[in-house]
Amino acid sequence: MTEDFYCDEVLNGKTKVNKVLETENVLAYYHTKPFWPVHIVAIPKKHISSLITLEEGDNELLLELLDVIKEVAAMVTKENGSCRVLTNLGDYQDSKHLHWHIVWGDPLR
C-alpha cells in the first residue's frame, strides 16, 4: 500500500470510488476493500496526515469533515439501526491521511 492511498489514488482519480457524499473539501465514499458489510470512508481533500497532526488552521475543515461524518452516520443508522465511527492512529493507520470509517455490522471474514 502507498503511504497515502487517499491522495495518491482516490483524490487523483486513479482509483474510482462509489461516492456517498461530497463537499468542496470532503469526500465520503464506500470503501474499496470493505471490512464491514457497510463500510464508508470520509476524508478531507487536503492532505492531513492524522488526527493528531491537525493544526489550528484546520479547524474549519475539521468542522466540515465532522458535518459530513454526521450526515453519513445518520444515514447508516437510519438504514441499519446503528453504526460505528472510528479513526486510526500510529501503526493502526495504514494510509497516512486523516480518514474516518463509518461502519455497520460484524467484520467480514
Rank of each mutant, 00 (worst) to 15 (best):
E71I: 00
Y92P: 02
T77M: 08
T53V: 09
E64G: 12
H39G: 00
I43G: 00
D58E: 11
D58G: 12
M1L: 05
D91T: 08
P37W: 15
M1V: 09
E55L: 12
L98K: 02
K14Y: 10
H101T: 13
E79G: 12
F5V: 07
I48Y: 01
L21A: 08
L62N: 04
V76Q: 02
V10H: 00
H101Y: 14
C83N: 08
D67K: 13
L21W: 05
E64T: 07
D58N: 13
F35N: 10
T23E: 06
D106H: 06
W36S: 04
A42L: 09
A73N: 10
R109N: 09
G81D: 11
C7V: 04
K96F: 10
P37E: 13
D106A: 08
V72D: 01
N80G: 09
K45G: 05
T2C: 03
G13E: 05
L86R: 09
E55A: 14
V72G: 02
T77E: 11
H31L: 03
Y29E: 01
L27T: 02
V76C: 05
W100H: 12
S50N: 13
D4Q: 11
K33F: 08
N25H: 13
M1S: 02
G90H: 07
E3I: 12
T87I: 03
T32H: 04
K33G: 02
T53G: 00
T87P: 05
T32S: 05
L54M: 13
V103Y: 03
E79D: 14
Y29T: 03
V20F: 02
I102F: 11
H97W: 07
L86V: 11
F5Q: 01
D94R: 14
G90W: 03
L98N: 06
I52L: 11
E60T: 13
D106G: 06
T2K: 03
